[in-house]
């Protein structure tokens, strides 16, 4: 007689493998195997998880259309079932799945749009925290400024793309009509929720490297150098103003 955990493992494995026979012990009132009944159950599980994915990635859904999205979500659910009981966390790997999903290869920006949607949700559910006041930097003595570092806002996320994923996402985040987009321009998106609403902003040149360096704990001077090396167009004042306005900074850390 198999143990309960063995029964559960077999049951679970059969759910996510449409070719698998119903698990032993799944029988109808006549005590005979009930593949059709199990099929209904399996379909409900896969369908419900697909609904969760559809709810989390509305822009991707709008971009590819309902039929394509449903089929892609189904493939994802079967390939990568939830590993956590928290439905909220399901779909974390969906952007990577899209990147490797051959039928979606004609839309090379699609997984980046999915990443924006995923990070938007992470930001939405991140810890609450007040953002650094814009005038807080004025209290730091001038000669200390190069050596200060920042702790960043807990809801801050960065979504980088070789394509105009941010423009595409923005255009599909609402039901408004779409217009042609030149997707060849790389765009990085800064996602942060300083208050109640998640705000998504386009990152200026070098800004992504700047934020990444700050997140790693680098000093203002070191992060600025990193950003300048990454992109000669990097503008320190503009980037700091942008981060302050976005509420992306939380605290000043002095050495």
């Amino acid at each position: 007689m198999p143990s309960l955990s063995e029964v559960q493992a077999a049951f679970s494995a059969a759910i996510f493998d449409p070719a698998a026979a119903p698990p032993r012990g799944v029988v109808g009132p006549d005590r005979r195997p009930a593949p059709r009944r199990f099929g209904v159950y399996r379909n409900n599980v896969v369908s419900a998880l697909g609904n969760a994915i559809a709810g989390s990635f509305p822009a991707v859904r709008r971009i590819v259309g309902e039929d394509f999205f449903r089929a892609m979500a189904r493939a994802y659910v079967l390939a990568e079932p939830p590993i956590s009981p928290v439905l909220l966390d399901y779909g974390t790997t969906f952007p990577d799945f899209i990147a490797g999903f051959a039928p979606a290869a004609s839309l090379p920006y699609l997984h980046d749009v999915a990443r924006i949607e995923r990070l938007w949700r992470e930001s939405y559910h991140a810890e609450e925290a007040p953002a650094l006041a814009p005038d807080a930097l004025a209290s730091v003595p001038e000669d200390e400024l190069p050596r200060i570092a920042f702790s960043l806002h807990p809801s801050l996320r960065l979504a980088r793309s070789r394509y105009a994923a941010l423009t595409v996402w923005r255009m599909n985040a609402t039901d408004e009509p779409v217009t042609p987009v030149d997707i060849s321009a790389a765009e990085d998106a800064l996602i942060v929720r300083p208050g109640a609403e998640v705000e998504v902003r386009k990152v200026p040149p070098g800004g992504a490297a700047f934020v990444t360096a700050l997140a790693a704990g680098e000093t203002l001077l070191a992060a600025a150098e990193t950003a300048q090396a990454a992109d000669a167009r990097f503008d320190l004042a503009g980037n700091i103003a942008g981060l302050l306005a976005a509420g992306a900074l939380r605290d000043i850390r002095r050495a």
Binding site: A71, I183, S184
Partner: peptide, 27 residues
Amino acid sequence: TVDYDGQSFKLVPAGTCTTMETPNGMG
């Protein structure tokens, strides 16, 4: 018991992507 068959993947993206991209874009 059986959702539409996702395995025979004949579908192509048909949403806003068909009208959104520039005809000459690299995308």
